[in-house]
Computed example of a mutant assay.
Amino acid sequence: MLVVFRAYGPVRDAVGAKTVERELPPDATLEDLLAELLAEHPDLADLLYADGDLGDAVSLTVDGVSVSRLDGLETTLSPGDEVRAAPPIHGG
């Protein structure tokens, strides 16, 4: 299945592109996608992870929903999903 990864800010700098497409197996999770990206771009680890889990330096969403409201790294992806990684937005 095809999944789109959109990167913003420092994540974009680390992967060298705003949009990356990946073909993943049908039962793939967010963790599977990130593992593929990390294999090519190891600098992403410092941006995405803290103490072995997702950190808070980057906000990750799947089709506009924060992965913290889904199943985190175990979020199952579907064909055509769009995963976005961007610096968190703070409001006041």
Rank of each mutant, 00 (worst) to 15 (best):
E74M: 14
G72T: 11
T76K: 09
A85E: 00
G80M: 01
L30E: 04
L37K: 08
L37G: 05
L47W: 04
L37W: 06
L48M: 07
L77S: 01
D71T: 13
T76D: 03
G52Y: 08
E40P: 01
L47C: 05
S68F: 09
V58H: 02
L60K: 04
A39D: 10
T61W: 02
L38P: 04
P42R: 05
V65P: 03
L34C: 05
D81V: 07
V62F: 06
L30I: 11
G80V: 00
D43W: 15
P87T: 03
V62P: 08
E74T: 10
V62N: 03
S78W: 07
A85T: 03
H41T: 05
L38G: 06
A45Y: 15
L70A: 09
H41M: 09
A86N: 05
A85F: 00
E82M: 00
P87G: 07
L73T: 10
E40Q: 09
V58G: 04
L47D: 06
P79I: 08
L34P: 05
E40R: 04
P42D: 02
D32L: 03
G52C: 06
L44T: 01
S78E: 13
D56N: 15
R69Y: 11
R84W: 01
H41I: 07
T29Q: 10
Y49D: 11
D81R: 08
E82H: 00
A57D: 15
D46P: 11
Y49R: 06
A45L: 13
E31V: 13
E74I: 06
A45C: 12
L30T: 06
E31P: 13
D81G: 08
E31W: 15
G72Y: 04
L60E: 01
A85Q: 02
L77R: 01
A57C: 13
A85N: 03
S59K: 14
D56I: 12
P79G: 07
I89R: 06
P87N: 03
L70E: 10
L44F: 01
D51W: 07
E36W: 05
S66N: 12
D63N: 14
A57P: 14
R84H: 08
G80F: 00
S68H: 14
R69N: 11
E31I: 11
A85L: 03
A28D: 06
A35E: 15
A57E: 14
A28H: 04
Y49L: 09
A85R: 07
L48S: 04
L38M: 13
H41V: 00
L48H: 09
G55H: 10
D81C: 09
E82V: 05
D46M: 07
E82Q: 02
S59R: 14
D43A: 15
L70C: 07
D46H: 14
T76E: 08
L30R: 07
E36G: 03
G55N: 10
T75E: 00
L38T: 10
A45T: 11
A45P: 14
E74D: 15
T76Y: 04
A86L: 05
D71F: 11
P79K: 10
P42Q: 05
A50T: 14
D63I: 06
A45H: 15
P42A: 01
D32S: 08
S66F: 08
A86M: 10
L44H: 01
G72V: 06
D43K: 15
L48K: 02
D81E: 13
D53H: 14
L77P: 00
D56A: 13
L54T: 03
L54K: 12
E31Q: 15
G64V: 14
V83Q: 01
D43M: 13
G80K: 02
S68E: 10
R69L: 14
